[in-house]
């Protein structure tokens, strides 16, 4: 559908990738851990290897949760934009198909949040 307007109504997206100065947005969501109330937005270089996501990015975001240290990364179930996904740590975001405004949702079987409250 289009917007009903008195004239032509087309605009560029305000969050198109060109506006991020060579970087791109990626969202992260750790399922069943509502201590972090919403998915988290990061701006990252497309050349970033996934190993840095695991080694630097996620610990900084989620390290305050007591279950984070217990994660066995070999059992983590990933979803990239709604599709099951197995990330290779050596590959970059671009190589893995993680593009601008992708959502990475991950589940940690056995670690379902605190107090049986998915917290």
């Amino acid at each position: 559908m289009t917007t009903t307007a008195i004239g032509t109504y087309t605009f560029p997206s305000r969050d198109r990738i060109e506006n991020f100065h060579g970087l791109q947005l990626v969202y992260f969501l750790w399922d069943k851990h509502l201590m972090f109330s919403a998915p988290i937005t990061l701006v990252l270089p497309p050349t970033l290897p996934f190993s840095e996501i695991l080694g630097e990015v996620l610990p900084n975001l989620y390290g305050a949760h007591p279950q984070f240290a217990e994660i066995d990364w070999s059992t983590v179930e990933w979803e990239l934009d709604g599709v099951a996904f197995i990330p290779m740590p050596t590959l970059t975001l671009t190589a893995l198909g993680i593009d601008h405004k992708s959502l990475l949702r991950f589940r940690t079987p056995g670690l379902e949040g605190l107090a049986q409250a998915s917290f």
């Binding site: 087309t10 560029p12 997206s13 305000r14 506006n19 970087l23 947005l25």
Partner: peptide, 15 residues
């Protein structure tokens, strides 16, 4: 076309 103009504060900070 209306909402792709949204001035989302988080994205604006990151821009």
């Amino acid at each position: 076309e209306k909402y792709l103009q949204s001035w989302l504060p988080v994205h604006q900070i990151l821009q």
